[in-house]
Design a protein around this nucleic acid. Structure first.
Length: 421
RNA sequence: GGAGAGGUGGCCGAGCUGGUCUAAGGCAGCCGCCUGCUAAGCGGUUGUGGGGGUAAAACCUCACCCAGGGUUCGAAUCCCUGCCUCUCCGCCA
């Protein structure tokens, strides 16, 4: 969420930034309403001040057994007036809030201007793409041949876009989770295992609500949401807290399953593990001081890339252009892993700096030593990595002519074997 | 699932028969003073958000005693709803 006063004071600047994102918004009406709101606020505060002082007066006169009836009559009228203004104010505040909650973040100046993913900028590539002396198979074919992935039975017990992992497939998934968590914690990220359901308030905090409810799975009774990413529970860990400067930066890593409706993605990636309603992910989350957040974004992205390097999987990193940026993000790098069967790079991680956008919604602040007042922290997060897609990349990149799949060196201690056949 | 208790400032804790509560007291923190040192003691001070004000401060003011409503001239205090915590019973991995 953006700051109401900041928006009201920078109408032109923000209209332009939103246009770069593909949002056409007229903010002049908002500014007018803000001014009206502040005018009413001043009025009601003056009336409340009067009520406070007269209330003292009434208490005093009552002790002296003087006649207080005229004052009470007067205050009854003042009370009604206060109530009336408060009602108007509540309505205006709600409008302001609703409006701001639906405005996306402002892109950082370094974000390339563009309309969609075709205008993202490649930043770097790593690894060499393997030359196959046979036609590489899709991961779903490999999974079937090795009997480690079962889509049909998942459809039977639940529905489409769900998967059953079996035998060494399940073991590989589990090994990847442990490997990623171990690598991340070795760099100072603290491991968090949060609830996989959260309340609506948390979803507002990180920006999934109110705008993106259709993408979430909702529990009706009691009313909870299944998390679409660990970002939600982990960022909200410090909701409504004031952190001390010495506590920052805070680094968390968290494995969770992620649940997404994938509404509107009909026809995309219908086969295979790429797009699922439930998938595993290991996430990195940072809480940092504002002046450090862009350096932290670079390091967070490197930390995610390190996992692909350790697994010797070729990838590239792209900077998302303004039009492709997620709602809450000020800047995002996507990391894309090479999939030989598709002959293209596919997203396996998304690393973002949200600046104070989430912190304002979730009310996460910090206090500088020796300074008055508080400031909003900056929050960041990134996948390190999407586990299912990493498994896809391993199956496809490490497949052999006879249908077997080699296990990357780094995973062998976790798998206790070096090949799936 | 049943029965009961409770949520107050960084922490503990009083207030809860509505009006010096602009929340007692203690602890902790900070600043002084005092005393060979330390401890003790003495004095002062300490939150958050908003509005106004200022070059910036100072300063003025409104709100905040879990959250949201209600009653009242006036609510930490009374009423309702929700959330959370604790105790006992039952059930359970």
């Amino acid at each position: 969420m953006l700051d109401a006063r900041f928006v009201s004071d920078n109408v032109d600047k923000i209209e332009k930034a939103l246009k770069d994102r593909g949002y056409d918004l007229d903010l002049t009406n908002f500014r007018a309403k803000e001014q009206e709101r502040l005018q009413l606020l001043r009025e009601v505060e003056e009336l409340r001040g009067r009520r406070n002082s007269v209330s003292e007066e009434i208490a005093r006169l009552k002790r002296e057994r003087a006649n207080i009836q005229p004052l009470i009559e007067e205050m009854r009228a003042v009370g009604e007036k206060i109530k009336k203004i408060e009602e108007e104010l509540t309505k205006l505040e709600k409008d302001t809030q609703d409006f701001l909650l639906n405005i996306p973040n402002i892109p950082h100046y370094s974000v390339p201007i563009g309309k969609d993913d075709s205008e993202n900028i490649e930043i770097r590539r790593w690894g060499s793409i393997r030359e196959f002396d046979f036609t590489p198979l899709n991961h779903w074919d490999i999974g079937e041949i090795l009997d480690i992935i079962d889509f049909d039975r998942a459809g039977k017990i639940t529905g489409s876009r769900f998967t059953v992992m079996k035998g060494l497939g399940a073991t590989l998934e589990r090994a990847l989770i442990n490997f990623m968590l171990d690598l991340n914690t070795s760099k100072g990220y603290k491991e968090i295992l949060p609830p996989f359901m959260v309340n609506a308030d948390s979803m507002f905090g990180t920006g999934q609500l109110p705008k993106f409810e259709v993408e979430l799975f909702k529990i009706i009774d009691p009313e909870y949401y299944l998390i679409p990413t660990a970002e939600v529970p982990v960022t909200n860990l410090h909701k409504n807290e004031i952190l001390r400067e010495e506590q920052l930066p805070i680094y968390y890593t968290s494995y969770t399953p992620c649940f997404r409706r994938e509404a509107g993605s009909y026809g995309k990636d219908v086969r295979g593990l790429i797009r699922q309603h439930q998938f595993n992910k290991v996430e990195l989350v940072k809480f940092v001081k504002p002046e450090e957040s862009y350096d932290e974004l670079e390091r967070l992205t490197q930390d995610a890339e390190d996992i692909l390097k350790s697994l010797d999987l070729p990838y590239r990193t792209v900077a998302l252009c303004s039009g492709d940026l997620g709602f809450a993000s000020a800047k995002t790098y996507d990391i894309e892993v090479w999939l030989p069967a598709q002959q293209r790079y596919r997203e396996i991680s998304s690393c973002s700096n949200f600046e104070d956008f989430q912190a304002r919604r979730a009310n996460i602040r910090f206090k500088r030593a020796g300074k008055k007042g508080t400031e909003l922290v900056h929050t960041l997060n990134g996948s390190a990595l999407a586990v299912g897609r990493t498994l896809v990349a391993i199956l496809e990149n490490y497949q052999q002519k006879d249908g077997s799949v080699l296990i990357p060196d780094a995973l062998q201690p976790y798998m206790k074997i070096d090949i799936i056949r």
